[in-house]
Computed example of a mutant assay.
Amino acid sequence: MMNAIELNNVSYKTKRFQLDDISFNVPQGFVTGFIGANGSGKTTIIRLIMDLLQADKGSIRLFGKSMNMDEVGIKEKIGFVYSELYLNDKWTIKKAEKMIAPFYKNWNHDTFYDYLNQFDLPYKAKIKTLSTGMKMKLNIAFAFSHDAELFILDEPTAGLDPIVRNEVLDLIQKELINENKTVLLSTHIISDLEKIADYLVYLKDGDIILDNYLDEIIQNYKIVRGSNDLLDDELKDLTIFHEDNKTGFTALTKEHQVFEELFGNQVMVNNPTIEELMIYLGKGDIEGSHSSHQSQDEVASQ
């Protein structure tokens, strides 16, 4: 499988933040969900990928090349959607297109104009008159109008109402009918990923916790629920995270077969959602050697 993006042992440090030996891949032809709490470093990594920041060490390759080998050629293949629209708000959309189009040899005015119509964006409207949602739609229209192969989307649905969010997600899915198209979608709205993600990268405290196809992740991790008296200390050591409440325990584990063999239908075993994976892996011990033990009241208060 070809990778659209490869990070190998990338480190980056400021006075307040550190990424240390970050490695992960974004496979070509899939939607990769890039998740992590606010401040975990997702936007910093995206800026490193786009060569807006320089890594202290390690390598970043896009389409098999480092950015300094062919910056213009690589960036022409990327549709980049920032979390904000960085354009002069005194410009009209028409003026913005005039300024941006020359950077892309495959710029397609007809495609861009079709997106404007689809999104109800007047061509001669000034950017300062656009709402947050309209600005994000414009951002997407620019990214999707020059025949890009890789879309890097940094919180593209933040601040959008549910109807517009669904429009944006449907648009991304339509683009991926072509199997050569690749998406790296950074978001804190996990329900967006439940709908479209094929691959998952989870960044926690500057470290990569997950980097795999979603199907394989769900095969490896299971949610087990049962009566509190079933969960002794030995079984707790087989959990990555567990919590007790009045109705019983909930645990994330890679050893669900042990629970099933011991207790049969006394326990329920389910596939985790992406949101459950993020919460429980975020609070638990990834190695599974020392499970985290919190009540639901404690979890809710954090």
Rank of each mutant, 00 (worst) to 15 (best):
1 M>A: 08
3 N>R: 12
7 L>P: 00
8 N>L: 05
8 N>A: 10
10 V>E: 02
10 V>M: 03
11 S>R: 06
13 K>S: 14
14 T>R: 08
14 T>H: 11
17 F>L: 08
21 D>V: 05
22 I>E: 02
23 S>P: 07
23 S>D: 09
25 N>Y: 10
28 Q>P: 00
30 F>H: 14
35 I>G: 02
35 I>P: 04
37 A>K: 15
39 G>P: 14
40 S>C: 12
40 S>D: 02
42 K>G: 09
46 I>N: 02
47 R>L: 06
49 I>F: 04
53 L>M: 11
55 A>Y: 12
57 K>H: 07
57 K>D: 15
59 S>N: 14
61 R>C: 08
62 L>Y: 05
63 F>I: 08
66 S>N: 10
73 G>L: 09
77 K>G: 03
78 I>S: 05
79 G>Q: 04
80 F>V: 10
81 V>S: 11
86 Y>N: 07
91 W>M: 15
91 W>I: 01
92 T>Q: 03
92 T>P: 01
93 I>Q: 00
93 I>H: 01
96 A>W: 01
99 M>L: 11
100 I>N: 02
100 I>G: 02
103 F>R: 12
103 F>L: 14
106 N>A: 11
113 Y>I: 10
114 D>E: 14
118 Q>T: 13
118 Q>W: 09
118 Q>A: 08
120 D>S: 11
122 P>V: 00
127 I>V: 15
131 S>E: 11
132 T>M: 10
133 G>I: 00
133 G>N: 05
133 G>H: 06
134 M>D: 00
136 M>P: 08
138 L>R: 01
140 I>R: 03
140 I>Q: 11
144 F>K: 02
145 S>N: 12
145 S>F: 08
146 H>S: 05
147 D>P: 01
149 E>H: 08
152 I>T: 06
153 L>I: 09
158 A>E: 13
159 G>K: 04
160 L>M: 13
162 P>G: 12
163 I>H: 07
168 V>H: 00
170 D>Q: 14
172 I>F: 15
172 I>G: 01
173 Q>D: 09
176 L>E: 06
177 I>L: 10
178 N>Q: 05
182 T>K: 06
184 L>C: 07
190 I>D: 05
193 L>P: 02
198 D>C: 07
199 Y>H: 15
203 L>N: 07
204 K>A: 12
206 G>Q: 13
207 D>I: 03
209 I>M: 14
210 L>G: 07
210 L>K: 04
212 N>V: 00
213 Y>K: 15
213 Y>Q: 15
217 I>Y: 12
218 I>P: 00
219 Q>T: 14
220 N>C: 03
221 Y>D: 05
222 K>R: 12
223 I>A: 04
224 V>D: 00
230 L>S: 08
231 L>W: 07
233 D>Q: 11
234 E>W: 00
239 T>A: 15
245 N>K: 01
248 G>K: 04
249 F>N: 07
251 A>D: 13
257 Q>Y: 09
257 Q>C: 01
266 Q>W: 01
267 V>Y: 03
267 V>Q: 01
268 M>A: 13
269 V>H: 11
271 N>F: 13
272 P>C: 05
274 I>L: 14
276 E>I: 03
277 L>I: 02
280 Y>K: 12
284 G>L: 05
285 D>H: 10
288 G>I: 04
288 G>E: 09
290 H>E: 10
290 H>N: 12
290 H>I: 15
296 Q>V: 13
296 Q>C: 01
297 D>K: 11
298 E>Y: 07
299 V>W: 13
